[in-house]
């Protein structure tokens, strides 16, 4: 079988999502860093979001599974230390998926207030800097009173 192209593999890996936020792919999260193809074997470089993130194990297993389902027997995955991940690496598509899922995306350079992903109000209060996972803080919207997760800015 001919080796699949890099672009093809990128597209296949679109199916690998962050297990904690199952609407955002590892590419949109910015942790898929490189792909090398040689003689039917594929090598994938990923970087961790948070250094202790337990989802990295599930993500590695998922990458392997997806590629093997497409007939690639030899898959190797490197967990790299560089580049150092930050939230600016999340794509616009990723931010949009996050919002639609009910998680406020990380603030960007020109933003000052966290907007509620439900109603859009910027009248929000941080309840705890540490939320359900290492990457999230817990907020409450003062307009619609819903609590929500905020994906912390990390840069």
């Amino acid at each position: 079988m001919a080796s699949p192209s890099k672009a093809q593999i990128f597209q296949w890996l679109e199916a690998v999502k962050d297990p904690e936020i199952p609407v955002i792919s590892i590419r949109d999260l910015g942790i898929l860093q490189g792909i090398r193809v040689a003689d039917g074997s594929v090598s994938v470089d990923i970087i961790p979001t948070y250094s202790g993130c337990p989802a990295m194990y599930a993500i590695q297993a998922d990458i392997k599974q997806v590629l093997q389902a497409h007939g690639i027997e030899q898959v190797s995955i490197q967990l790299c230390h560089e580049p150092v991940w930050n939230t600016d690496m999340i794509t616009e598509q990723g931010r949009e998926s996050m919002r639609a899922f009910g998680i406020a995306p990380p603030l960007q350079a020109d933003q000052r207030t966290v907007a509620c992903p439900q109603c859009g109000s910027t009248e929000t209060t941080c309840i705890s800097q540490f939320g359900s996972t290492a990457c999230k803080a817990l907020y409450r919207c003062e307009a619609c009173l819903e609590p929500f997760d905020y994906f912390k800015c990390h840069a």
Binding site: P48, Y50, S51, G52, I127, S128, F130, G131, A134
Partner: peptide
């Protein structure tokens, strides 16, 4: 609850540093 989560989040980061 929030502090319980915070303490264990910090723990997880530190164990991540140890791992590296």
């Amino acid at each position: 609850l929030e502090e319980d989560v915070a303490l264990t989040n910090v723990s997880l980061d530190l164990i991540g540093h140890a791992h590296m």
